[in-house]
């Protein structure tokens, strides 16, 4: 139980610090720390496969890309002072909309948390830990969702390639 609170505290504090940073590189690193703590929580839930996958996919692959982009754009500091007046997201309308979204998220979160039966070990014994079981369930029961997700990612990738592709006529 002690480990749960340690990992939980790290995850929450790191996540909060992500949005409190001025420097995007530090935000990325804190997000990685938060992912690491989450993966620790998965280990406590007796799901080592999910924990390792969390590190490989999120901390290892996706965040490297984030860091890569942040470094390439070379934006060490968010511009705040002179940006404040002209930025469209800083106007009252969008800010109210954002506040409404935040409140609805909070309500959803409370609803989800009170709905659970509160038992810490809701996962069945060894049901999540075994890679074999996980694979079998993923490719039989949830095969449709799995395949649809992969197609969705493929669509996003093709879209990114199309958007990034240089127009041959523009560079003559």
């Amino acid at each position: 139980m002690t480990f749960f609170y340690v990992f939980g505290a790290v995850a929450v504090i790191a996540s909060l610090l992500v949005i409190a940073q001025r420097n995007p590189i530090y935000s990325v690193l804190l997000l990685i720390a938060s992912f690491g703590a989450l993966s620790g929580l998965y280990v406590l839930l007796d799901a080592p496969f999910v924990a390792v996958t969390q590190i490989i996919v999120y901390a290892g692959a996706i965040m490297v890309l984030f860091l890569f982009v942040v470094m390439l754009l070379n934006a060490p500091h968010e511009e705040t002072e002179h940006d404040e007046k002209i930025h469209p997201l800083r106007r009252p309308g969008p800010m109210r909309f954002g506040a409404a979204l935040a409140v609805s998220l909070l309500v959803e979160l409370l609803w989800a948390l009170t709905r659970g039966n509160g038992e810490p070990n809701a996962f069945g014994e060894a049901s999540v830990s075994s890679v074999r079981t996980l694979g079998r369930v993923l490719f039989t029961e949830y095969a449709f969702a799995f395949e649809v997700t992969s197609v969705l990612i493929l669509v996003a990738m093709v879209g990114a390639v199309v958007l990034a592709k240089r127009d041959p006529r523009a560079h003559t």
Partner: peptide, 24 residues
């Protein structure tokens, strides 16, 4: 660890941060 191969892969994917952060 019963997912040892994946752990090695995960740590290998984390080691890139050392180099990237040193560079930046």
């Amino acid at each position: 660890v019963n997912v040892a191969v994946l752990v090695i892969f995960a740590i290998a994917s984390m080691s890139v941060y050392g180099i990237v952060l040193a560079g930046w």
